[in-house]
Simulated assay, not measured.
Amino acid sequence: MRMSIPSWAGLPAWRRPSPLPGFGLALGYTLAWLGLIVLLPISVLVLRAASGGWGHFIDAIWTPRLVASYRLTFGTALVAAAINAVLGIVVAWMLARYRFPGRRWLDALIDLPFALPTSVAGITLAFIFGPNGWIGTWFAAHGFDLAFNARGIVIALTFVGLPFVVRTLQPVIEELGTEEEEAAGLLGASRAATLRRVVWPALRPALMTGFGLAFARGVGEYGSVIFIAGNRPFVSEITSLLVVTKLEQFDFDGAASIAFVMLLASFAILFALNLLQRWLEPRSSARAHRSEKRP
């Protein structure tokens, strides 16, 4: 008995009929809301930044004060993302691999920076790490201030960025299981070799994703930073604060120009992250395939 080939077999996947109807409606609804919520505000921002001409745009985004804020913003965001990468691995591994009293409470506490208003987080961190705070008092007495400088910004960005790394790594660690690690140990591999050849290749793409998300969040953070940074020009003034300063001065074109630069920076970070993920996935798959072929 010959089986007939459906007429849609040669069509692309997105044009093939689905058991559940509604692709066209769902696609139109998605594009409409993305255009209204994402594309329209971005388009208005770009048009406003370009309204004054190229010369005005360069003058607005390239001043000594702004350059110092760029350096501080991206530098502290990078340092905080690196700290979160190390802490995130430890915390995610502990939550995924171990069972202990209070684990559920600790697991829920990781998401607190997501739910907590950023201004509340900034005030709380200033109370704790400021010169008169619970922790900052001891450091200030020894001549090492934790607040109202770049160190305070790193503390705030580490607080808001940690959940991105933990929540990206945790499901990967839970899915990884312990079978491959136990097999490597039975075959004589040391703990360092098991970590380097079994665990690390599986965690690396997720870690890079969490690192990139924490870095992008740190670049655009505002509320949790301004209360602990001190906001001193050329010392502890972030770029997001200068956008607000321009708005308070009714320089809307200048604010739009600076915001456009930050938008491009965030897009570049996410674009580079996607490229890195695509480059790492084939290498990880090839390494796993070679490991499966080994006796």
Rank of each mutant, 00 (worst) to 15 (best):
R2I: 09
G10Y: 06
L11A: 12
L11P: 11
R16W: 05
S18I: 00
G22K: 08
L25M: 10
A26V: 15
A32F: 14
A32S: 14
W33L: 15
I37V: 15
V38F: 14
L40I: 11
L40Q: 10
L40A: 13
V46L: 11
L47S: 15
R48W: 02
S51W: 08
A60W: 13
I61C: 10
W62M: 03
R65H: 11
R65L: 08
L66K: 01
V67G: 10
V67W: 13
L72T: 03
T73A: 08
T76K: 03
A80E: 02
I83W: 11
N84W: 00
L87V: 07
M94S: 15
P101H: 00
G102I: 02
R104G: 15
A108S: 15
L109K: 00
I110Q: 06
D111V: 07
D111Y: 08
V120D: 12
I128Q: 06
G130W: 07
P131T: 13
N132W: 07
G133S: 12
G136E: 06
G136K: 01
G136H: 02
W138G: 00
H142T: 00
R151C: 09
R151I: 13
V154A: 04
A156D: 05
T158D: 00
F159T: 05
F159L: 03
V165G: 07
L169R: 02
P171L: 01
T178M: 13
E179F: 08
E180F: 01
E180R: 13
A183C: 09
T194H: 02
L195I: 08
W200Q: 13
M208W: 13
G210T: 02
L213D: 07
A214R: 01
F215G: 04
A216K: 04
R217H: 10
G223A: 10
F227D: 03
I228C: 12
I228P: 09
A229H: 01
N231H: 09
V235H: 07
S236A: 14
E237D: 11
L247Q: 11
A255S: 10
A255V: 07
A255K: 10
A259C: 05
F260V: 03
F267H: 01
F267Q: 08
A272K: 00
A272M: 13
A272N: 03
N274L: 15
L275S: 10
W279F: 08
L280E: 07
P282M: 02
A286D: 14
H289R: 15
R294I: 14
P295F: 15
P295V: 12
